[in-house]
Structures are given as C-alpha cells and as structure tokens.
Write a protein that binds this DNA or RNA. Structure first.
Length: 466
RNA sequence: GGUGCGGUGGCCAAGUGGUAAGGCGAGAGUCUGCAAAACUCUUAUUCGUGGGUUCGAUUCCCACCCGCACCUCCA
C-alpha cells in the first residue's frame, strides 16, 4: 500500500517514494536538553512515532535518527543570546554537561512512557563536533561562509532558492516585518551562524578548537552534519515541529544543499502544536508547563495522552484540556477491558489482512496518518459482529501502531487494609440482605475514591481517577 | 506586519460534489436488591454568515464575520 504524506516543501500530499525500495530513513529533530520536555514537545514525538510505526506496518525497514541538542542552541534562534545549555547550568548550579545528561535521561523516560520506539541512532551534538567542522570547511571552500566579529556565517544570498521550505513571500515578509534582531555585520538579514567564537568574558563550559578559533557550532549546522553522517547526503523524511519551518529547517536545507549540491530531504513532515487554551501558552519560558510526570502524578496513564494525541490529526492544532484527557483515559481503559475480555473468549487471535476493516485501517494510516479515522475503525470492529478471534486479532494488530498497550491486564492496585475490610463487611451485609448497610458502605468507599462493582463472579473495585 | 490554519450535534473529532465516521456526554431499555460495569437502542434534514457555479454543495469559487497558530523560547 502506498503511503501518502503531506510535504511542507511542495505543500501537498505526495506518495512516499523511498530512495531505496523498502527502506525509509528519517531524521527527526530531538530535544534541546536544558530543561524538562513538556507535553507539547511530546506531541511531536508521539506523531513521529505514529509515522515510524506506520512505515513498519506497511513493510518498510525504518532507520530513524534523532539528535540531542546539547550545545549551541541559543536563547534566540537568530544567533543571539546565550547558549541554552549554559543558561540551564547557571540556573541549577551544575555543569552544562551534567545538565545535558540529566535532561536527556529525563526526556527518554517520558518518551518511553509514551511508548515511542527508541530511535535507531541517537546523536548528541557534542559528539559530532568534528563532522560539523568538516561540513563547515566544505561550505567555506565553496564560498558560502564568511567571517565576522562573533563567528562564521552562512551567506544566504549565494543560494538562489534559499527559503523555499517556508515560501518566498513568507521569507520576504520577515524582512519587512523586521522582528528579528539584526546583526549589523551580517551581509544579509537571514544569514546565520555556522560557528560562533567563544569570548573571554563568557567563560563557556562547552567549547572546542576549530580552524577558525575556539568556539562552538551553530545550532542548524548540528542537524545537517549528523543527518548526513547517518543517512547520507539525501534523506527520505525529515520531521519536526511546525516552528522549525522558517528558520531551523530552512537553514539546514541551505547548508546541506550548498555543501552537496543535492536535495537534502525529499519529504518534510511537520507536526502542529499543542496549545494550552486557558491554561496559557505551552512554552518552556512561560514556566509551569505540563510534563508527562505531571500527568502521572495526577493519576493518568501516559498512554491516555498518547491516545489524546491520536484523537486529532497531526497537522491540526490540538487544544489541551483535562476534560479531553479524561475522555482519552476512559477510552484507553475501555479498549483494554474489551481486549481483556476477548482474550478470555478467543482461542487465538485471528487477523484477516483482506478484511474491509483492516483495509480501512491501513488506508487511513497510509493517508497522511489519519490516526483519528484508524481509531474509529478499531472501535467499529470491536463493536461489530465479528468473532472474538477476529476482534482480538485486529486489536492486537492495530496496537502495533497505536501502541496503547491494549493487551495490558488492568492493574489491580493494592488496597489499604481498612478499605479492604469495608469491602468484606459490605459483602457480608449483602449476603445477609442488609442492603441499607451495604449501600452505606458502598458510599463510604466511593467517598474514599474506591468504586465498587458487583459482578456475577463477585465484588470488584477500582480506584477513581483524580 | 508577514505566513498559514480552523469554524461540523452539549464536548472532542473524521469526512465527502449526491445529501453527515468514531469517541465522550445525555436519554431509554436489558441486567441488578438498588447501583456499577456490560450490552441494545435513541441523540446534526444539518456542517460560521451571505452570495455564486451545479441537476445537486457541508464538500468547489467569491465576499464577510469569528477564533487560533507560526514567524519571538518553543516540538
């Protein structure tokens, strides 16, 4: 089945044609590890994971590369301000290296909790300084680089199609808008740093020797160097958040294509932002952002958030709300309960890849990742008249992409002894047909967050979320 | 200022040139001592507003209103 992806470069859905049949190489921009990742950041990784898993389901061999930006990402994308890593180090009184290590680990903890598959290659920028310097040397040799006071810059006027990703009118609009602080020494407003020099007053913790002097790589250079190192001069798919279109990815294209003379990436796939509605803007600098850890503390399964991400298309803005997350959590619970029941009923899962439902499911995924429609197909099958074997087979197959741990047994948490005693007492009261007492006890338990269910097999309970 | 996106039932959200997926919620029923859970059924003659094209538009075109995002720390 053909996969269609919306390509930011051409502004239309295109059939994915890999460079090598059956193989798909992806470069996905990773986190800048100077602070915790919030759930808005994670939306992008969840969407990328959906793409990776869809490619695998469709039979591709996937090689996914993710960078870790642990140096060089300045407070402003316009090559001004401090390095975020150094800011984090100052804030917490640790070394920049410790900051990077700590937040990298924290990121992958959340990443894993959301059932995102580990990248095949994870590359911290600080381990690829030589590759960046080498790329810079090529750019210099080809005449795209020039030196000014604070660093080596890329001359965007030398590249006729500079800015093609964001679009010509957009790039011109930025110039007119003049909202980007301009370094007066730059030849053109859009020129960006390839290498920045350390200054004595900075006392940088992260700096390296280079043919141009001591300093550190430009943020955009990092991704170009690492992407080409691991995936070749031209890569299949490059992903990231929508915010990267006009600066970061635009500049990656500029550097890479200037250096190689070949297209950098064939498909550019960007995810829209999660917005916070009345909670305020979802940004690190705004403070008080929500993390996966926050959700866990509030009693949510992180996979409820994954479901929530899949409830809307990745190219549509998604507004976060607790109500919506509750709905997603309920849905995940319900799906797991259905699968648990099917596992009791079915002898073995049965999957018919020619069934209309399965085709609908895969076609939805193949149509620019319509997870919302894919989800609807799953619900449809589970509520259809199909056999338990077929339903189970379908659900387990769907979960290869959805990754909601649908076959996870509902966790029976430990109950405090005094609450367990109340349940025992209530069961005795029910047996004695003392329903008044029984109802009192049920109320008492529910006030403590324990919900009672009397089933033919006996009384069960679960903890209310909150 | 530039660029782009959206406005579909109480909420979230797919979708299509021929008359509206799915989930949540709500209502009814079965079950239950009563509930809960589960299951069954019901819940948009209508898709921001006004025009136009068409045999026919929610879907195409134009105008307008409203909301949002990115370009500025962001994924």
């Amino acid at each position: 089945m053909e996969l269609k992806l919306y390509n930011t470069l051409t502004r239309q859905k295109e059939t994915f044609k890999p460079l090598k049949a059956g193989e798909a190489g992806l470069y996905t921009c990773g986190p800048t590890v100077y602070n915790y990742a919030h759930i808005g950041n994670m939306r992008t990784y969840v969407f990328e994971d959906g793409l990776v898993r869809t490619l695998k389901l469709l039979g591709y061999n996937v090689k996914r590369v993710m960078n870790i930006t642990d140096v060089g990402h300045l407070v402003s994308d316009a090559d001004s301000g401090e390095d975020k890593m150094e800011v984090g180090a100052k804030r917490e009184g640790k070394s920049a290296w410790d900051i990077a290590k700590f937040y990298t680990e924290s990121f992958f903890k959340d990443y894993k909790a959301l059932n995102c598959l580990p990248p095949d290659v994870t590359c911290p920028a600080t381990e690829y300084i030589q590759e960046m310097i080498d790329l810079n040397l090529i750019l210099e040799k080809k005449g795209f680089a020039y030196r000014i006071g604070d660093g080596i810059y890329f001359d965007t006027s030398k590249l006729p199609d500079y800015g093609k990703l964001a679009g010509k009118s957009h790039m011109e609009g930025i110039q007119e808008g003049a909202r980007v602080e301009v370094n007066a020494d730059k030849r053109n407003p859009h020129d960006f740093a390839l290498w920045k020099f350390s200054t004595p007053e900075e006392h940088r913790q992260m700096e390296w020797d280079s043919p141009w002097g001591k300093g550190f790589p430009g943020w955009h250079l990092e991704c170009s160097a690492m992407a080409m190192k691991h995936l070749g001069d031209t890569i299949d798919i490059h992903c990231g958040g929508e915010d990267h279109v006009s600066v970061h990815h635009t500049n990656e294209i500029a550097q890479s294509e200037a250096a190689t003379g070949k297209p950098f990436a064939n498909y550019w796939v960007h995810g829209r932002f999660l917005v916070m509605g009345d909670t305020g803007k979802m940004a690190k600098s705004a403070g008080g952002f929500l993390t996966v850890e926050t959700l866990k503390e509030k009693g949510y399964d992180p996979l409820a958030y994954r479901y929530f991400c899949f409830s809307a298309h990745y190219r549509k803005q998604l507004e976060f709300s607790w109500e919506a997350l509750d709905t997603s959590a309920r849905n995940v619970d319900a799906l797991r309960a259905m699968v648990a029941k099917l596992k009791e009923e079915a002898k073995a899962p049965l999957l018919s890849k020619n069934s209309p439902a399965y085709l609908t499911f895969t076609e939805a995924l193949a149509d620019d990742l319509n997870l919302s429609l894919a989800l609807a197909t799953l619900w449809g099958v589970l509520r259809s008249t199909a056999t338990a074997e077929e339903k189970l087979g379908f659900a387990l197959e769907a979960d290869k992409v959805l990754a909601l741990d649908l076959d996870r047994a509902p966790a029976q948490e430990a109950l405090a002894p005094e609450l367990a005693a109340l349940i025992t007492e209530r069961e005795a009261a029910r047996k004695a047909k003392d329903f008044k007492r029984s109802d009192e006890l049920r109320k008492a338990l529910s006030d403590k967050g324990v919900l009672i269910e009397d089933t033919p097999k006996g009384t069960t309970w679960k903890i209310a979320r909150g």
